[in-house]
Write a protein that binds this DNA or RNA. Structure first.
Length: 290
DNA sequence: TACACGTGGCC
DNA sequence: TGGCCAAGTGT
């Protein structure tokens, strides 16, 4: 397996098959890229598109978002899920306003220091918004590398040193090409080398793929954790927050009580929402977005 | 290192 | 039908 057997075909494939997404357009601002990365964390592109568009129309800059209460960000987040991301995006906008002159920072370290920005998002923004040479390892990239290079259907639970070394080894030397390569591998993972039922017939590197050459063996690693949802605290939190999101102003506690039957669970969920800063209890005892 | 954290679509 | 999955981060 040489670099060129993987990189060049995937770059050519991307040139022909890349989706036209708002945050990939030449006129997309770093803020647009940053917003997209927050929204895309654990969330499909199709659901992000309309919310991203409305978000950028309302808040074209981090300064504009930072000027509003965090609760407005939570409300505008709508039903994207994981609303703590909205809170963190608002906090990131505030930090950018206060510490970076309102400009999304371009260094990996400065990005990493922002709330809600971890290794993936810092590398992605540096690469996609600023054209830098960064190792971008998301779930798509990791799956593509696991199959094509390692010969396993799925990567390990967490990023390994070997993956990081491999990502660095494959990364083209030229920064703009490196950035394109990173988005190209992600796109291949999202559209072709999917977790379930990969479309190997449309893959530009199927002939070089270690997993294919090994006969596409079934995954035999440790069981991947199942996400339960019905009846969980997460679902309860979602129900409570939906009441506030869909209401202008504040609500009495009875409105929240009506949203979930299990009393101890409801109280626990409400307390956690308040602790997270997603819900504010007012002096009059009513509840509202922060 | 595991686990918590929303939501909806797919087969 | 319901298990599985979707551009992760924080603790």
């Amino acid at each position: 397996m040489t670099t060129s057997t993987l990189v060049e075909p995937i770059l050519r494939w991307y040139d022909e098959h890349a989706r036209d997404l708002p945050w990939r357009r030449p006129d997309a601002t770093p803020w647009s890229v940053l917003v997209s990365e927050f929204m895309l964390q654990q969330t499909p592109v199709a659901r992000v598109l309309p919310v991203h568009e409305a978000w950028l129309a309302r808040w074209p800059t981090p300064v504009a978002l930072a000027a509003e209460p965090s609760g407005e960000a939570v409300r505008a987040w709508g039903r994207l899920g994981y609303p703590r991301r909205a809170l963190r995006l608002h906090a990131a906008a505030t930090a950018i306003t206060e510490h970076h002159g309102g400009v999304v920072p371009d260094s990996y370290d400065d990005l990493l220091a922002l709330p809600g920005v971890g290794d993936y998002t810092a590398a992605a923004v540096a690469a996609f918004a600023y054209g830098q040479r960064q190792v971008v390892l998301d779930t798509n990239v990791r799956r593509v590398l696991a199959r094509t290079v390692t010969g396993t259907e799925f990567p390990a639970r967490s990023v390994t040193r070997a993956e990081r070394d491999l990502g660095a080894e494959l990364l083209p030397a030229d920064p703009p090409t490196a950035a394109t390569w990173s988005v190209a591998v992600m796109e291949l993972g999202a559209l072709v080398c999917t977790a379930d039922r990969p479309r190997c017939g449309g893959c530009p590197v199927t002939d070089a793929c270690a997993w294919q050459q090994a006969g596409a063996p079934a995954y035999d690693g440790p069981p991947r954790p199942v996400q339960t949802y019905a009846g969980t605290d997460r679902q309860c939190r979602g129900r409570l927050l939906a009441v506030l999101r869909d209401t202008h102003g504040s609500v009495p506690k009875e409105r929240l009580d009506a949203a979930w039957d299990d009393v101890p669970q409801r109280e626990r969920a409400l307390a956690s929402l308040i602790a997270d800063g997603l819900v504010a209890e007012q002096p009059d005892g009513r509840y509202a977005l922060p």
